[in-house]
Every structure is written in structure tokens, then in C-alpha cells.
Amino acid sequence: MSGEHADTGLGYTASELLGVMAARRLYDGASVFAGVGLPLLAAVMARKSHAPRLMIVVEGGVFDPEMLTGRLPISTNEMRIAHRATMLTSITDTFLYAQRGFLDVGFIGGAQVDRFGNVNSSVIGPYDRPKVRLPGSGGANDIISLCRDVMIVTMHEARRFVPRVDFVTSPGFVQGGESRKEAGLHFGKVSQVITNLGLLGFDEQERTMRLEAVHPGVTPQQVQDATGFELEIPSDVPTTAPPTAGELTLLRSLDPDRRYLG
């Protein structure tokens, strides 16, 4: 996690870059399942700019909240995230809205991501006697299973981008091809992996990870070097538009204490 607050040398930190790129994926009228931290900042940022009717849903049972600046929530289950919501309900019922298909976008993170977009936030090593016991799924498995388009937001490091995750906490394309659907997940998919180096997607047939764009100042080779498996890299990789001054000002205004932006 050490690098996410580091300055990229371009006038913004890696976490600011992730926040801006995530916000750009949100659109007016969409419903987004957001966790605390960068996903929530990105969602509020989108609502304050290009997506004023973005509906934010939080797993603690909170629909469409308007949080207080400088009082950013620590968890998904507390008053800070419930301020001025239009609905408060139970956790189970909140996820059932996602299972029914009402949630357009979801964000998740994790300790490991593999070439099929599977995410591990459970254990490093064997499940029963792990080398590292991580906190666990939380809502991540439900979000990736049930929302229509899921974005994985993470720092890009070879130790995170592994050929095969130690444990599939949250299923991306499982073993590639049609295996996600064959497991019973007819809907939803990992649409994009947003990292501090670029944007990655998945091959339409094989469902293996491919590079779709690099961020300013990053080469495709640098992305490959930070990835523990072979990426599909097209001959012509576009470069993302850098965060604008307006985007950065807005994002920073939402986290004045830099609790999540570092």
C-alpha cells in the first residue's frame, strides 16, 4: 500500500489518479455500489460534477447519502455515511437490490488480482493455516457477483497481479471463457481494472486481462513489468487524459484531511 500516496511526479498522487479515473467511469442516472475510501470519494466526485443524479448505495443499508465534508465515513455501517440518505434499510435487503439487478456499477479492491480478474481478500497461503489472514470478503464477493459492471481499483504491483490468486474471494471470469456463466453467474462482469499505471480490460473470448490504456508517463512495458503474468498488449495503446486541475481540486476538497488521498 506504500506507493499509493506517492507523488507521480506529475502533480498528483497515485490515489488521486485512481480516484479521478474511477469517477470518470460513473455516469448520470447510474446506481453505484460504493465502499468507503477511494470508491466513495470517486462517487461523490462524479455526483458533484458530471453525474448529478448518480445514486450511491452503501452496504450498511444506506441509499443516496449526502455526506458532510471533513466527516468522511470510516465504515459502510455508520451515521457518517447515512447523513441525508433517502432510505435506510437492512444489510441483507441492500444486497438483495443488487441480486435483483438494480445496481449498475460496483467498485472493489483486494490484495491479489489474477489474469481472469478474480480477487483475493481472504488469505495468503492455505485457507486453514494461512500465512496471512486478510480481513475477508466483506461486500466484495456480493458486489462482483451481482452488480452489472464492476471496477477493480488497485495499485499495480507484481506481488498483487498474480497468475492465480491464492483464494478466489470474489469471482471475476473464474477460469476464463464461459466459466463464470457456467458457475451460475449469468449477469455482471469485471469491466475494468483501474490501476495507478493504466486501465485494463478482458479479452472477449478468453477473458484474460489485456492492457487498454496507460496513464501519462507510463509505458506498456512498465505495466507488464509490474504484472506477474503475461498481459495481452495491443500494438497501439492509448494514453489516458491526465487528471484536470478541476478534477483534482474537487477530489481534494472532499477529503481535506487527506484520510484517503494520503
Binding site: T92, S137, G138, D142, P171, G184
Partner: peptide, 26 residues
């Protein structure tokens, strides 16, 4: 998963042996 555990409690609350869900598959 959150929903998996939530539905386990709900099935208990309903007095039935299980509930079907789409989460955790795969």
C-alpha cells in the same frame, strides 16, 4: 459473503432449511 451470511440468518428467521442465492457462486 455479507449476503451469504445475511441469507443464512434470514432462512433461520423463516424457519426453512436454506435459501437460494446467486452470490458466492464461482
Amino acid at each position: 459473503s455479507h449476503l451469504g451470511l445475511g441469507l443464512r440468518y434470514r432462512a433461520g428467521a423463516m424457519g426453512v432449511p436454506f435459501l437460494p442465492t446467486l452470490t458466492m457462486l464461482g
